[in-house]
Design a protein around this nucleic acid. Sequence first.
RNA 1: GCCGAUGUAGCUCAGUUGGUCAGAGCAGCUGAUUUGUAAUCAGCAGGCCGUGGGUUCGACUCCCUCCAUCGGCUCCA
Length: 646
Amino acid sequence: MIKITFPDGSVREYEAGITGLDIAKSISNSLARDIVSVSVNGTNLDATRPIHTDATIKLHKFDDPEGKYAFWHSSAHLMAEALEALYPGVKFGIGPPIDNGFYYDVDLGEDRVLTDADLPDIEAKMSELAKQKNDYQRQEVSKQEALDYFSDKGDEYKLELINELEDGTISFYQQGNFVDLCRGPHIPNTGFIKALKLTSIAGAYWRGDENRKQLTRVYGITFPKKSMLDEYLEMLEQAKERDHRKLGRELELFMFSNRVGQGLPIWLPKGAALRERLENFLRSVQRKHGYQQVITPHIGQKELYVTSGHYAKYGKDSFQPINTPAEGEEFLLKPMNCPHHCEIYNSKPRSYKDLPIRMAEFGTVYRYEQSGELHGLTRVRGFTQDDAHIFCRPDQLKDEFIKVIDIILYIFKVLDFNDYTAQISLRDPGNKDKYIGTDENWEKAEAAIIEAAEEKGLHTTVETGEAAFYGPKLDFMVKDAIGRKWQLGTIQVDYNLPDRFELEYIGSDDHRHRPVMIHRAPFGSMERFVAVLIEHTGGKFPLWLTPDQVVVLPISEKYNDYAQKVLNYLNNCDIRTLIDGRNEKIGRKIRDNELLRIPYLLIVGENEQNEESVSVRRQGEGDKGTMKLKEFEQYLNKEIDKLLLY
RNA sequence: GCCGAUGUAGCUCAGUUGGUCAGAGCAGCUGAUUUGUAAUCAGCAGGCCGUGGGUUCGACUCCCUCCAUCGGCUCCA
């Protein structure tokens, strides 16, 4: 007998060799029907794996992340089985579970192309196979057996994967006629998969390497219940409604023009007003934190970027130099603000007493992004960074870094971004050629970031190999409406640029020293930040930020004069107010302005005119009752102040 | 840049096997209505069917080029 400990601490005894599934059955049959995998001593395993020794276990349903992992992993195998049945000879790359579903990379051969039209057939085959309730059977194999199997099959992708595995750790899983190299775990049988949808087809380079063959990637998602698939599809529909590209057009915030050029956003009046307000907000925060604003030109001599190292790294993949007509000079559209700021630093001798110097600029930069990468406002070719560079002494580095974290967290709090993650990006020690700078400086910089993040108690993930080429960084990421992650704020330590520009200060010892630089942008770029803000709020911006705060709706044209009086009064109080004086019924005006997400609708007619009052309606909430004008002004200012009171 | 898809009026979309198929709703304009908390009614106007080629007696419809957009991949100072 063995002792099995459950998450609640209770212990039961079972025969050695019992499976997680049997344990579930011993509790209840209905539970057993929902169990898709089991964690044994912290390792996620098949629910059908025998347990031979005392263990702590946790039974996973689909609702658990571990359960989803197994469920979608098994679904990928089911799809592969369907693909093999429909397209004999297909070769398989990898087929992992992902955040929302799974994919499988396949090679169909030279002359076969998969398109969206093929998806229903594959889905039908998968459903057919799922109904057979075939068990997922695990088999441990030797490396040689594994190699033999896939060389017989002629699948060079699997052979490549097997060659990187160690003998004795290799397992196959089989369901129906399909066998795959896989570590597991898997669900008990295909019958668990009750609802499925293949979502898209894409190209994906084998092993993520653009120099290798491009495989066909098929994405899908599955559920143990039909209703869950419906809910998921419904959620996707709702997410589409929040898409910043759609809302940007509907709320007239920004546009693109092919004549102007792809990836070059154009800010419309309302969008520009919103952005300006965000910039002023940050300016004011930065002023309080000892930053000074500077302004630098949009182009700079090529030599500037040769000095900074950016030209060597990005020159040939960037917008090409602008040539002068006569002297043969070359200028680059600025892709970065930092070289300009270094020149400002260098414009006069600096003392250790002057440091830190914090130089801020809303600097517009231009980068040649690959055409396939452009995406709404989040990935563009011309954008404005809320950039700043902090030049400080090495002994000030960690403090300054922490102060920047404080600013970013403050901004996130004011704007109600609570669901962010922080990522520390370090260099890949196995690939040092990708980076510039000395080992010693890298080590110092990475240590400073890790310590600062720890000191602020940030929950961070560490990504090796994700650093910028000149230094490590701390990035703040948030998710958009459909769960895609975007990097917003960033803080980067840089020892290299001060070297390259030979930045110096005179220390208390009367000797020359090299300052350290911090690059930082709390929003990242105004474009991306506004995009994420649009999706985060669904276009319902905070009152202090929104382009139009109030719209006055006269019941009929007879009350347009009174509406104008209300408008004048509010505009005098610095409340951004419009009138909807159209010859339409009040219901119509309410509907149209609700859809424009204007926070307050003021309905005025006979009664309001007589009492010098307004009937207040909050967007999305409905009628708030009647108030005197003065009262409404105070009511609004209370809401505006509350939002800035952090 | 690569793989796949898409591109018809300002927006959202119909357009059957190539042959009065250039349409609808919303938005816009004009008129009527003067309205009390999410769409008043009527009329009018609006499109070189993304671009450039080709096939055909005839192309929105078929083929190719290019451009742009969408979903991914790669990239992201």
